[in-house]
Structures are given as C-alpha cells and as structure tokens.
Design a protein around this nucleic acid. Structure first.
Lengths: 162, 162
DNA sequence: GTGGATGCAAAGAATTTGCAACCAA
DNA sequence: TTGGTTGCAAATTCTTTGCATCCAC
C-alpha cells in the first residue's frame, strides 16, 4: 500500500519529488466511503502529507501545500475529519503542538525526538517490531475488557548525540 | 505546612486521603540540592500533586491547591522547573494540553485514555512491566548510540466500555 | 541584603468557531 | 439544487513573558 517507488529522502526543505498516487487514491476512497466530499483542498492536503517522511504540524503542513491551495483553518478541519476516518494519526511530541501523519493501514512507527533540536528520527524496524508486539498485546487485553477502537502511541525523548 | 490530617475524599473521585510526606521531603531535597529555593508555593504544589492519582493539567492542579495558595502562572513556572529537576513528568494525552505527574523515582506508569470521556485509567502492574521491559531495552540501545537523558512515553487511547 | 521567586497583566501560540459564499454530488 | 466545505475574521484555550514586589537563604 505505501509508496514503494520512492527513492529520495529530502526532509528539511521540501524538495519534493514524485508523489505517491496510491495515498491519494486510498484517501479518495475512504472519504467517499464515509459519504463525505472529495474536494480540491482535501486532495492537496493528502498529497502533501504523503510526501512527508515524518509527522508534521498543521502550520508546517499548510506551508508545504502548493501555493495557498487551502487555508490553515481547512487544514485543521481536515485533520479532524481525517483522524475520525482513520486516515491520519495525531501525535503530541514536540512541545504541545499536534503533529500528523498519514495512516495508510501500515503499522504505526515510533520515533526519538531530540529535546534540544526538536529533530525527529524514526526507530529501526527491529526495535519497532519489538515495541509493536508488546503494545499490540496490551491493546488486545484492553479489547478483551470491552475497550473499543484501541490505539496507542509510544515515543522516545532524548538529547541526540553531537 | 499543608494539612497532614486529611481524611476526606473531596474532588472528583480520587480515593486516597492521607498525604505522603515523603513526596514533600523528597522534593524539598531535590530543590535544595539544585541550589534553588524551597518556597511556600512550591511545597503546596508538590503536596497537591502527591495527592493526585493520575496526571493532572496545570489548570486543574491550580484549582486543587488549597485556596489560592499560588497563582496559575506559578504553577506553570514550577512545572517547568520541576521537570528539569526530574521531579515531575509531563505528558500530552487529553487534547493538546499538558498533564503532569510527580516523578519520585519509581518507574513510569502507563494509562488508557477514553477518547469520549477523557477519563484516564492506569494499566495493571503486569502489563506495565511488560511494556517497561521493552521500552527500556530500546532506551538502552539509544544510549548505546550516544543519546543522552533518554526517556519514553507510551499511552493507549480507546473508547471505554459502557 | 540580594537574587531567585511570585503575582498580575499582557503577550503569544495553537486550535476552534461563526457565518456567508462556494462547489461536489 | 443543496448540504457539505471552505475562507476569513474573531474567539478560545493553553502557556509564556515583562516587570515590580517579595521572601528564602
């Protein structure tokens, strides 16, 4: 499902290259299926989000969207809608500001956030797998107790080397 | 200092009455040891925090402190100082607002937050131990890579039963 | 006595809400 | 056509900052 043809790794500036059409198609389906409308701003947001390699804040996401294709308020509103659709995940590391990332069905990822530089680094697959295994088992226990729609977040904070 | 002979259970359903004098003593030591001043507001804040069974937001913490013993701004400032001292931990579940809890050296706890009611429930010891084991091992790997002062957070979100 | 700490007011940042115009179905 | 969406402005909420006063050491 997730882009499998990406070869670049921009970050920092937005040096954006090819754009995974899969994400947009997936989103379009989810939105329609929910009886909501597929609009230009929504597509632009999803496409932009699909090009981000790490969670981004509303403000930054808005900045990255091609020339004012939509208002910041719309970004906030869409994030709310998309989150309910299970199309994006919201996290709260980096100060108290929310960060969003597309949820294309793949298992959640985990990150280390540098408290000094605010830089975010994704954990390697091995560590992620270990973490996921345990957290998912706990989620299952909660579901067994009647909790529904269970999700989790796990993040690490530290002072990065150098 | 603050009442030490409590027997009632005011406030939104917290069970515990008596107040652990240890927390205040521990805090007093940490503050002094850092060359900072042990003030009345700081003691009141720590004592209040010690009576909370779950993380509380700044606003609520302020509300719980015995009759305006200190200003809300002071609560914020103290949380900042205490966090640096490693005396409190800050978390960001419940919307984007920060929640704080005392850090008396005991291992961190984990919670399930109901997205509907915002109610927070602590996970049982067994689950917590499992989670802790894995996350600590990942922390160790990060330390081995040069990361310093590594910490983690892990929380679950769901719709509580009933 | 003196510098760190506090209170009060005001500033800031992040996110939400009101409402008329707009466009996807 | 028509109700979901959007934009712009204004309002909220949470948190931080400025500054004169105050108190812990």
């Amino acid at each position: 499902m997730i882009a499998s043809t990406q070869t670049n790794n921009p970050l920092g500036g937005d040096a954006p290259p090819a754009e995974p059409p899969d994400a947009v198609a997936y989103a379009r389906a989810k939105i329609k299926q929910a009886g909501l409308r597929v609009t230009q701003p929504r597509l632009a947001i999803v496409a932009t989000l699909a090009r981000c390699t790490e969670p981004v804040g509303a403000e930054e996401l808005h900045r990255r969207i091609a020339d004012g294709a939509c208002d910041l308020v719309t970004v906030y509103r869409c994030m709310g809608v998309f989150e309910e659709l299970g199309l994006v995940r919201r996290a709260y590391f980096k100060d108290g500001a929310a960060s969003y990332e597309l949820d294309l069905g793949a298992p959640p990822r985990y990150h280390v956030v540098c408290r000094a530089t605010k830089r975010v680094e994704e954990l390697d697959a091995a560590a992620a797998a270990e973490i996921r295994a345990v957290l998912v088992s706990v989620e299952d226990k909660l579901r067994a107790r009647g909790f529904r729609d269970v999700r989790h977040v796990a993040e690490f904070f530290a002072l990065a080397p150098r």
